[in-house]
């Protein structure tokens, strides 16, 4: 292991990470660092390995080779019982929203707090703050089916930040949104990043790159393309 390469400043660090599915390489020898408070776009076409990389960061996949560190913790060596505690520090936003259809907006947002046994008073306060931050506080009692696509994604973001995570991962968060809504959601991520949260947004949409104008990491066929903004 390249233990000597583990950076204390990095929020996320991948060291020679590889993953193979059915003899097809999803990731090949990927090594990268993401600093605390950075906003990073993970670009690449469909099947480039972006989702695999994000899933590895929350312990949903294990690499065949290499090491992954999140906040200095080696994710590849976590026991299954430790994975939930990692996920409480890392918020996730998905393209398909993944809200529970029979629970109201506020109940959906409260879920990450409920699973930790947070008191009802604290849950109410934190849910209100999160919903206010993403601009859907007025929808708190509604069920997801009555929300628009943009509102869906805002609720999903509220659920991801309600815990106050140090890292926010978003997998194609604008995939189901029109360009105007895409701009709104990206602005929301920028706001969250401005408060100190490290944000990693995976997307195949070049339009998003223009909106973000931050560091870009590009994956092509599971291989990391040279990073133009961070010299090796």
């Amino acid at each position: 292991m390249d233990a000597e390469r583990v950076s204390v400043d990095a929020m996320i660090q991948l060291i020679h990470v590889s993953k193979v599915y059915d003899r097809r390489a999803a990731l090949s020898d990927v090594t990268l660092d993401i600093e605390k408070g950075e906003f990073v776009l993970l670009m690449g076409p469909s099947g480039a390995g972006k989702s695999t990389l994000l899933r590895m960061l929350i312990g949903a996949e294990r690499p065949d080779q290499g090491q992954i560190f999140v906040q200095g913790k080696n994710v590849t060596k976590l026991r299954p019982s430790e994975v939930p505690y990692l996920r409480r520090r890392v918020g996730s936003v998905f393209q398909d929203f993944r809200l529970l259809p029979k629970k109201s907006v506020s109940e959906n947002v409260a879920l990450p707090l409920a699973v930790q046994g947070v008191s009802p008073a604290d849950i109410r306060r934190k849910v209100t703050e999160a919903l206010r931050a993403v601009g859907v506080e007025h929808k708190r009692d509604q069920l997801p089916h009555s929300l628009s696509a943009g509102e869906h994604q805002r609720v999903c973001i509220a659920r991801a930040i309600v815990n106050g995570p140090t890292v926010l991962l978003a997998d194609e968060p604008t995939g189901n949104l029109d360009p105007a809504l895409t701009g709104e959601i990206i602005e929301l991520f920028k706001l969250i990043n401005a408060r100190g949260t490290t944000v990693v947004v995976a997307t195949h949409d070049p339009h998003v790159m223009g909106l973000v104008n931050r560091r870009v990491i590009t994956l092509v066929g599971g291989v990391l393309a040279p990073d133009p903004q961070v010299p090796a």
Binding site: P84, R98, V115, N163
Partner: peptide
């Protein structure tokens, strides 16, 4: 199953 997947992703323990 979808709800269970969501619970897993937001940090619910196996026991929960």
């Amino acid at each position: 199953r979808e709800e269970i997947d969501i619970l897993r992703l937001i940090g619910a323990t196996r026991a929960f």
